[in-house]
Nucleic acid binder design. Structure first.
Lengths: 106, 106
DNA sequence: AATATACGTAACCAATCAGATACTAATATG
DNA sequence: CATATTAGTATCTGATTGGTTACGTATATT
């Protein structure tokens, strides 16, 4: 995977727990960087960097309002990840069924 | 996230495209390491390392048969990731609906 | 105009990652 | 029993990550 592709890879973006927490936070509504940073034990620049990764993966957008920058959740790219996982749904369903049947037989 | 937790983090495991490809490959059925490695441009030890990460995330299991080791897909942990994504489904659905309505109005 | 605030970026650092090659242990085969 | 095959591990390397502090720039406030 080349650098450009890697940067916008949604799987890479959601691999980090802090970034997932930021996305979760944004489900409650858009927020400026300081508000977001306040929710975490990390420095503001650290959050800024996470936001850049999310931005590059197109999972958030930025709106400048005065001197603040509001970040908004843009969950569409998550569909790619969900789509990939979808291919496994039947599989784990099957495994669970198998387990259930096994338990009922004993 | 501490080291132990990180090791078994399914999000981390599926962040790497090679590891996702290995999982995809295993959907066709269990396979010994050499067979898996043959599908990739990387060295066998590299694949071995990926398999270890997948094993630690409990996404695959290993069965020793003679001098081979068969790896089997164990997709249950993917449910954790799917569950997290599920929380966003309504969200992107909503966004798509909004787009559709917008297009129909023009 | 001077100061305070919001936020991105640069520079740096330690830890982790993903790959390679070299080696070892276990098992199968001639 | 000697040799070949399978696969994990050790070690090394360069790149990437996730964090920090210091700084610059744009906007708001006094």
């Amino acid at each position: 995977m080349n650098r450009a592709r890697a940067a916008e890879d949604v799987f890479r973006a959601i691999a980090d727990p802090t970034r997932r927490a930021i996305l979760d936070r944004l489900r409650a509504g858009s927020a400026p960087v300081n508000d977001l940073a306040a929710d975490f034990a990390q420095s503001r620049p650290a959050i800024s960097k996470h936001l850049r990764v999310l931005r590059e993966a197109r999972l958030v957008t930025e709106q400048k309002v005065g001197r603040e920058r509001f970040y908004t959740l843009e969950p569409a790219p998550l569909q790619r990840a969900a789509g990939w996982l979808e291919g496994y749904r039947g599989f784990w369903q099957h495994n669970l069924d198998r387990l259930k049947r096994h338990l009922e037989e004993t």
